[in-house]
């Protein structure tokens, strides 16, 4: 059987409508962009249309929207305190966007947008730039206190401040790499184990073993759903934690 077994193939960007070229680079409306629009549409449906009834006893969709909202509101409140409320729209949007994209990626034959580092790094940059711009605008030079850990003896600051600076710069990297690596690795593992089933089935007597990778694939699918939700939650939580630094720079 000569099926295409390339586990990376599913992550290829395919243009849907070409919009022309800049140099050698094609500009196109890709399937990635399509999925992002679909995600925004789903979120809008869920949060605007489902809650437009504003019934006191919520229907299913309204209850879902309200539960998600309260969940993120709780998270933001715990991480940033009372004055972090103004960042709730940002954190909630990021959470919903990542969550819906992750879950859309779990549909068979679909494309996981968050498996691309460009997308996740773009989202992480939004977070970090918000932290830096808001922090500097609110606290001015006092924002640099974020690099000075408290309760550290003076001579040690010579070492600790560079470490804190690199640590701060590593935040967007860890935020984006975590999301992208989890989704990418999960989808590749799923594809590989699923293909083991096919390979064993066509290998004659070895077909007896094929239920093993099948069971593993099913278990991995469940795990991937957990990871999809968990990574969106982690992304939102860390966003809130980093935003707390912008609100209160001196630890």
């Amino acid at each position: 059987m000569a099926v295409s077994v390339d586990p990376i193939h599913q992550f290829e960007i395919q243009p849907i409508v070409s919009l022309g070229h800049i140099g050698n680079q094609q500009l196109a409306f890709t399937q990635s962009a399509l999925y992002m629009f679909a995600a925004v549409g789903i979120i809008a449906l869920l949060t605007i249309v489902a809650t437009s009834g504003r019934s006191v006893v919520p229907g299913r969709l309204q209850a879902l929207a309200e539960t998600l909202y309260e969940f993120i509101a709780d998270t933001v409140h715990q991480a940033t305190g009372a004055d972090g409320k103004r960042f709730l729209p940002l954190v909630f949007s990021l959470f919903m966007f990542v969550l819906v994209l992750n879950l859309l990626g779990m549909l068979p034959y679909s494309f996981a947008v968050t498996s691309h580092l460009v997308v996740t790094f773009g989202l992480a940059l939004v977070v970090i730039l918000t932290v830096v711009i808001y922090g500097v605008a609110k606290h001015g030079t006092h924002f640099l206190g974020v690099f000075v850990p408290s309760g550290v003896p003076k001579p040690l600051l010579l070492i600790m401040v560079p470490i804190e600076i690199v640590s701060f710069l590593s935040r967007p990297i860890s935020l984006s790499v975590r999301l992208f690596a989890n989704i990418l690795a999960g989808h590749i593992a799923l594809k590989i184990f699923a293909f083991f089933v096919v390979q064993l089935l066509v290998a004659g007597a070895w077909g007896v073993l094929s239920p093993l990778p099948l069971a593993l694939t099913i278990a991995l699918t469940a795990l991937e759903f957990l990871v999809a939700a968990l990574q969106a939650y982690v992304f939102a939580t860390l966003t809130a934690v980093y935003l707390a630094d912008a609100l209160h720079p001196g630890h």
Partner: peptide
């Protein structure tokens, strides 16, 4: 969050080295 924390550890280290 404890599972999420476990997932944080590895990338947190790698991100430091990459940065």
């Amino acid at each position: 969050s404890s599972l999420g924390q476990a997932m944080r550890l590895s990338t947190e280290f790698i991100a430091g080295v990459i940065a």
